[in-house]
Design a protein around this nucleic acid. Structure first.
Length: 192
DNA sequence: AATACAGCCAACCGCAACAGA
DNA sequence: GTCTGTTGCGGTTGGCTGTAT
């Protein structure tokens, strides 16, 4: 498939005028059909850019900033279970977007974990830091959800190598498990 | 006051997944 | 089943802002 190059499209930060055009169009006509939307709305932006702006900023349900300690703890728990599946994590935290959670993780939480001697990718102690007393605190805080009784992978398996596609069946199993609503709900409710 | 540096986050890019013809 | 266009996701980057020198 040939790459579609959009010429004459504006890039970079959105202006208040563009925001107004996009949100009033979507309120009037609804979202979706992102590729044709900007032309119909009268915007010189690509569909991707419009979708991103709406999803991460303009949607009325989007909360911005001020992540609470409860939300932070939930992000830690979900990341421990799911790895860098930001959309999946965001789906369990009302009003938060994948982009916001990803940014919060990269700028705050991963540094916090590193300072505690924890590898933010694996949620295991960094090399030669397993005796770090902070690790015990972190395990209690972040990874203390009960492991399922039977037939389910543990969280370390899930995130041990997120880029590997060598075992498709296993990956499917993990994905279906990871997205299990009842289990994730129990994880959330345990915390609230 | 000017400059350098660091942190943060909005937005972009590439690719995978999905949908439908 | 295959091809093609669209959407969604995650990694990355560029630029803005605040702080240090």
């Amino acid at each position: 498939m040939g790459k579609m190059v959009e010429i004459g499209m504006k890039k970079g930060p959105w202006t208040p005028e563009e925001d107004e055009i996009l949100s009033s169009y979507i309120k009037r006509e609804g979202g979706g059909r992102w590729r044709t939307l900007p032309k119909k709305a009268g915007l010189r932006r690509c569909g991707k850019s419009c979708r991103l702006r709406w999803m991460n900023y303009l949607r009325p349900s989007v909360k911005r900033g001020g992540i609470s300690p409860e939300e932070e703890d939930l992000i830690l728990r979900l990341h421990c279970l799911l790895g860098n599946r930001w959309a999946l994590i965001a789906g369990r935290i009302p009003g938060r977007t994948d982009n916001e959670i990803k940014n919060y993780w990269n700028t705050n939480l991963s540094k916090k974990l590193i300072s505690q001697g924890i590898d933010p990718r694996t949620h295991k102690p960094l090399s030669s830091s397993s005796s770090n007393p902070n690790y015990q605190n972190f395990v209690h805080l972040s990874c203390s959800m009960e492991q399922p009784e039977v037939g389910l992978p543990n969280s370390n398996e899930i995130i041990s190598n997120p880029n590997s596609n060598k075992d498709e069946n296993k990956e499917d199993e993990i994905l279906s498990y990871s997205a299990d609503d009842a289990f994730l709900d129990s994880l959330i409710n345990e915390e609230m």
